[in-house]
Design a protein around this nucleic acid. Structure first.
Length: 281
DNA sequence: CATCATACCTGTTCGC
DNA sequence: TGCGAACAGGTATGAT
C-alpha cells in the first residue's frame, strides 16, 4: 500500500526531521534489511531526501547515499529534535519502537533516533555512492513517473505496446512509476474502465480519461497523507486518511456510489481487484 | 522478448 | 471456540 503518495508523505517528514542531522551510529538489529557497509555513512550529515517512484534516497555529505524501499510494511519512525508536539504513536507502529520488528536503528546527533520497522521484512536499505543512485540498481529500472515527467503522450504510447490487462500495466513500475493496487483500483473506477481490458484496446479518449483519473487519485492521496490501510505511518508516527476516501478499493459487497451496483472483487495479476460491472462495463 | 505465476514474510481475517 | 487456510500487496525471479 505504500505507493507514490504514501512514500511522498514519508519523504516530506524525513526532510523536516533529518536534513542537517548527523548519523552518528547505525545499529543493525536483524540481518537481511540493511545492505552494504554501514561504517561508510557513520559521521555523515543528511543533506537531502529524494523520492523516485516508491523509493526513498537519503543523500549524505560524504558522497554516499542510502536508498530504501519500504515495500508493504516498512516504517521509518523518528524520535527527537524538531518533532512537532508530543507525538502519539499509531498502533500501526508494529511491535512498537525498538520492538520485535525494528531492524535498523540510526542514532543521530542531538539524541535523536530514526527507527526502521518492518513487520514482513520485504523492505530494504542500501548504501550506494550518490553518483550511482540514478544510474544503477532499483531506481535505474523505473519508468517515467506520474505527476513528474510522465505525460499523456508517453502514457498512450505505453498502452499501445502491450495486450496486458490495463490494471497490471499501470502498476508496472518499469513502465510507469508510482501507482500500486489501491490507486490503480480507484483510478480505473473513476475513469469507468474495466481493469481486465487489454491495454492496447483502450481508446484515445479512454486513455486520456484514465491518465487524468490516475493523477486525480494520486493528488487526493497526497492531500490526505496517504492510505493507512495496513501498516503505513509517517515518521512522526501518525497515519494518513486516504483509506476513508477510497472510491472502490476495499468496497466489495457494498453498492457503487455512482450506479448502485454491488461491487465485486476478484484476483487480477494476483492482486485484489474491485469492479463495478455496470460502470466499468 | 513478453508475459505470467510464484516466492518472499507475518499478522489478520475467514471458513468450517 | 479453535485452528488451519487464505489473504494482504511491491517486487524479484524463474518458468512458459
Amino acid at each position: 500500500m505504500p505507493e507514490l503518495p504514501e512514500v511522498e508523505s514519508v519523504k516530506l517528514q524525513l526532510q523536516k526531521y533529518l536534513v542537517g542531522h548527523k548519523i552518528e551510529k547505525v545499529e543493525i538489529k536483524n540481518n537481511g534489511i540493511f545492505e552494504g557497509d554501514s561504517s561508510k555513512i557513520e559521521g555523515a550529515n543528511v543533506i537531502e531526501i529524494r523520492r523516485f517512484g516508491k523509493a526513498l534516497v537519503f543523500d549524505l555529505d560524504n558522497d554516499y547515499s542510502l536508498v530504501s524501499h519500504i515495500k508493504l510494511t516498512g516504517q521509518f519512525i523518528y524520535r527527537g529534535k524538531n518533532l512537532s508536539k508530543p507525538p502519539k504513536l499509531s498502533k500501526k507502529v508494529t511491535g512498537g519502537l525498538d520492538g520485535a520488528h525494528t531492524h535498523v536503528v540510526f542514532h543521530l546527533d542531538h539524541n535523536s533516533t530514526l527507527y526502521y520497522n518492518d513487520m514482513r521484512r520485504f523492505g530494504w536499505i542500501r548504501v550506494m555512492k550518490t553518483e550511482d543512485v540514478e544510474s544503477e540498481g532499483f531506481i535505474k529500472k523505473l519508468g517515467k513517473e506520474f505527476l513528474k515527467d510522465l505525460d499523456l503522450e508517453y502514457f498512450r504510447n505505453e498502452l499501445s505496446k502491450t495486450r496486458r490487462a490495463i490494471k497490471v500495466l499501470i502498476m508496472d513500475q518499469a513502465k510507469m512509476a508510482g501507482v500500486g493496487n489501491i490507486y490503480a483500483n480507484d483510478a480505473l473506477w473513476d475513469a469507468k474502465i474495466n481493469p481486465k481490458r487489454p491495454a492496447n484496446m483502450i481508446s484515445t479518449d479512454e486513455a486520456k480519461r484514465l491518465f487524468e483519473s490516475i493523477e486525480k487519485v494520486l493528488k487526493k492521496g497526497l492531500e490526505t497523507g496517504g492510505a493507512s490501510e495496513l501498516a503505513f505511518v509517517t515518521p512522526d508516527g501518525s497515519e494518513g486518511s486516504y483509506q476513508d476516501f477510497t472510491l472502490i478499493y476495499g468496497k466489495q459487497g457494498t453498492k457503487c456510489v455512482r450506479c448502485g451496483t454491488v461491487i465485486e472483487k476478484f484476483a487480477l495479476g494476483g492482486r485484489g481487484t474491485y469492479w463495478c460491472h455496470k460502470c466499468q462495463e
